[in-house]
């Protein structure tokens, strides 16, 4: 394999739609983790979320889905394909680990 082929495989994109929804997942996961900390730290935020659907967790889940889909569709219209597959993987895995640690760390 030549040097050029190595560089090509490391900078190859997974495509606009996949990259857009991958980045959307990463952002949504991180925001969701921050919302966990915010609502558990503030009774007012907790009550507001609960008032919308009747349960804070249902509202939280609905917000996550809305942000994920909305942001994914929005980013699909941008030049998301410029991000390489490797960066997308790093972003998705990193967001999952960091968000998971924020949530688990808060409840320890």
């Amino acid at each position: 394999m030549t040097m050029n082929q190595t560089e090509d495989s490391s900078t190859e994109s997974a495509g606009t739609t996949i990259t857009a929804f991958g980045v959307s997942y990463a952002i949504t996961s991180f925001l969701s983790a921050l919302l966990v900390v915010w609502k558990e730290s503030s009774q007012a935020v907790h009550d507001t979320l609960a008032a919308i659907t009747g349960h804070h967790w249902v509202t939280h889940g609905a917000l996550d889905v809305i942000v994920f889909v909305g942001l994914g569709l929005l980013l699909s219209r941008t030049r998301m394909a410029a991000m390489s597959g490797r960066w997308l993987i790093t972003t998705v895995v990193g967001a999952t680990v960091v968000s998971g640690l924020i949530i688990a760390g808060y409840f320890i």
């Binding site: 997974a14 739609t17 996949i18 929804f21 991958g22 997942y25 949504t28 996961s29 969701s32 983790a33 966990v36 967790w57 939280h60 889940g61 996550d64 889905v65 994920f68 994914g72 998705v92 999952t96 968000s99 998971g100 949530i103 688990a104």
Partner: peptide, 17 residues
């Protein structure tokens, strides 16, 4: 209950990928 919300989105993203 909160990490599961991430898992739900991750599985949805898998179906897209």
């Amino acid at each position: 209950e909160h990490v599961f919300l991430m898992l739900l989105l991750l599985a949805t993203f898998l179906a897209i990928a």
